[in-house]
């Protein structure tokens, strides 16, 4: 067997052993399509809103005020959501914003980590998220009478249909 033949044989064996999906030879058949076939892309939309805004009642150190946000999906395919860390909290020393799930008509103790994509959600579903604004127990006396607005950005992205 010549050198060239042996080289070809080695390459063929390597391709067969690599197991890549692109190395398959497929059986195929064809059929005629309708006279005016329609091919179109899907759509994807996510809407965010307050079910209950965070109450603005003044807080003592260690107190929390809780609101409920709603994320609603419309369109095709499954989806995921992500709640980013709140911004703009620096004006009130000791203020932190955290998130938990909402289930059975009440907020649970299950934390939603900021900045992490959720589990894949079914198509066309709605998710409620509890938003907790807490004034830290060690907030300084200088924080008295101060206030801060904050912003929560919620993102959504599509997933495959199945």
């Amino acid at each position: 067997m010549s050198m060239r033949t042996r080289l070809v044989a080695v390459v063929v064996v390597a391709l067969l052993l690599s197991g890549s999906a692109t190395a398959y030879a497929a059986w195929s058949r064809s059929a005629a399509m309708a006279a005016t076939p329609n091919v179109r892309s899907g759509n994807f939309a996510v809407a965010v809103s307050w079910v209950t805004p965070v109450p603005t009642t003044a807080m003592w150190p260690g107190e929390t005020r809780t609101g409920v946000a709603r994320v609603a999906h419309t369109g095709h395919g499954r989806w995921q959501y992500l709640v980013a860390s709140a911004t703009g909290t620096a004006s009130l020393s000791g203020l932190t914003v955290t998130y938990t799930t909402f289930s059975g008509g009440a907020c649970t103790a299950t934390a939603i980590p900021a900045g992490a994509w959720s589990a894949v959600q079914p198509n066309g579903t709605t998710v409620d998220i509890c938003v907790h604004a807490t004034l830290g127990a060690g907030a300084p006396s200088a924080a008295q009478g101060t206030s801060s607005g904050f912003t929560v950005v919620i993102s959504g992205r599509n997933q495959s249909t199945s």
Binding site: V11, A14, L15, S18, S20, A21, T22, A23, F44, A45, V46, A47, V48, S49, W50, P53, V54, T56, T57, A58, M59, W60, P61, R65, G67, A69, A86, T89, L92, G94, L95, V97, V131, A133, L135, A139, A143, Q144, G145, T146, S147, S148, G149, F150, T151, V152, V153, I154, S155, G156, R157, N158
Partner: peptide, 30 residues
């Protein structure tokens, strides 16, 4: 050859993404 076969097998996923924001406020007792 093996690198070419293995490296080119994956599909490139593209996500549609969208964001919305909610505003809130908090205050401390005087």
């Amino acid at each position: 050859a093996a690198l070419l076969v293995l490296g080119g097998g994956g599909a490139a996923w593209a996500w549609w993404a969208i964001s919305g924001s909610l505003n809130g406020s908090a205050s401390a007792v005087q």
